[in-house]
Amino acid sequence: MTAAKSTKAPFFRHEFVLVAVIVLEVILFQALGRRFLDGSNVSNIFRFSVEVGLLALAMTPVILTGGIDLSVGSMMGLCAVCFGMLVKDASLSPWVAAVLSIGIGTVGGGLNAFLIARMKLPPLIVTLGTFSLFRGLAEALTKGSKSYSAFPDSFLALGNSTVAGLPAQLWIFFLVAIGIWLLVHRTTLGRSFRAIGYSPEGSRYAGIPVERNLSLAYILTGAVAGLAAVILVARLGEARANAGIGYELLAITAVVLGGTSIFGGSGTIAGTLLGFLAVAILNNGLKRMQDYEIFDKTIASVSNEMSGMLTGLLLLVALAAVPVVKAITARRAKS
């Protein structure tokens, strides 16, 4: 009996549910969509979602500590605008400006870190404040309407070219993913994030430098938001104050869908990557379902609008799946 249980154990894992969801999505969209598994579309799936993916990766350690960072989307807007100004008004090379923009993101993350870790203010409130502050700064700097464009082609290639068969920015994403995976799963610092999320007081008594480690998590999201902003500008060829609007919620969705507990303490980078992939595939696939009739009703005009609804449903169903299956098997085992 115990042996049978242990072989069944992987089925209960949240990651398994996500893999099943992703496989189902791919089958559905390949059957119903137009040229879904076409090479150029597959690279589009990643090209469009790398920015949200980066935010989700960096958001995972923060949520592991039991915190949250609502300011990342706004931070992207601020970094995008600063990047534009550095290149266009200060005539810097885009690569120098990119490094400086990531620096600005790091400083912004540092502000969050100071208020949360040092001043002991609640992360939700602090980042709600900086959410408005960063976006407001970006709008004030551009008077809401100015935008920066006409960047050199060598820089735009970062967002639009292909390197070894994959979108250029995907390689950066891989590097960041590996880096954050190593950080979270292979270092004591990473393990301390979960410990802090599980019990901040306990962690302190266990000798973990809670304040320092918590700060590092928020500084990391700030820096990654800066990087995401640079990649977005390279893809669009335009830097504007409204860059990254709403991305913070997409990133949080991917993390939570990936099985990370919103209360902190448990979660994996692999889960976040799967959650991110499930949402990215869903949004892309819906765009390619143009002329279908379901039960004799044409859904041509609503397929794109359904993405919000289906993302929500996916999140709720995936989160409910594991507890429900556990409850059913527990009942069956009793009877």
Binding site: N44, L236, N242
Partner: peptide
């Protein structure tokens, strides 16, 4: 097809999607 939100990246994504179609 067109954007339903104010996300400035949306128009580009729709065009890129059409390119691959």
């Amino acid at each position: 097809d067109g954007p339903t939100t104010s996300d400035p990246a949306k128009q580009n994504e729709i065009v890129e999607n059409w390119i691959s179609l």
